[in-house]
Write a protein that binds this DNA or RNA. Sequence first.
DNA 1: GTCATGATTCAA
DNA 2: TGAATCATGACA
Length: 183
Amino acid sequence: MEDFFEQDPLTCARGLVGCQFHWHGCVGRIVETEAYDSVDDPACHTWFRPATRAFVAKHPAGDAYVYLNYGVHWLFNVLVKGGRRSGFVLFRALEPLGGIELMRARRPGVKDALLGAGPGRLTRALGIDGSAHGTGFLRATTSGIFTGDPVETIAGPRIGISRATDLHWRFGDPSSLSLSRRF
DNA sequence: GTCATGATTCAA
DNA sequence: TGAATCATGACA
């Protein structure tokens, strides 16, 4: 699966929709992603953060890039490099498939379909925080990504960014009930 | 729909 | 020192 991330970010982001994301006892179906290009994408952290450019240079494809957004929520990305272009894929939403009890325990009172319906909710449901940053989670035994059944995947503008809003680099399964927002 | 929340990075 | 930031939940 590591060579999967040796493509361009758009191909990776689109191809991940419908895949299964395993994370230390929990499993979810990825239903929403976004692509970021490390070179000519003003919305990518590499555009304005030297530390992120260093991360791209030092880490292999498939390593996790995790950071705290708005001082409140951890966001989970995967490094893409080695193909025609490098960048990141942001995991924005997933449907719980396994280990749901663990997710519920982390988010008391939240409906199952909403446990992973957003990039911040996703990390909280899975228990992801800064300790996952820079790890090669694809090579671990209790985490990884596996192909699932093919699904319809559509594209739309990325969410929450102020630059390059014309690029339709958000991908998702429009039939999912666990999207962070409707397409 | 509005609004408060509040860590980290980086430039000034 | 301060501006910017790939969001969420509570409330009306």
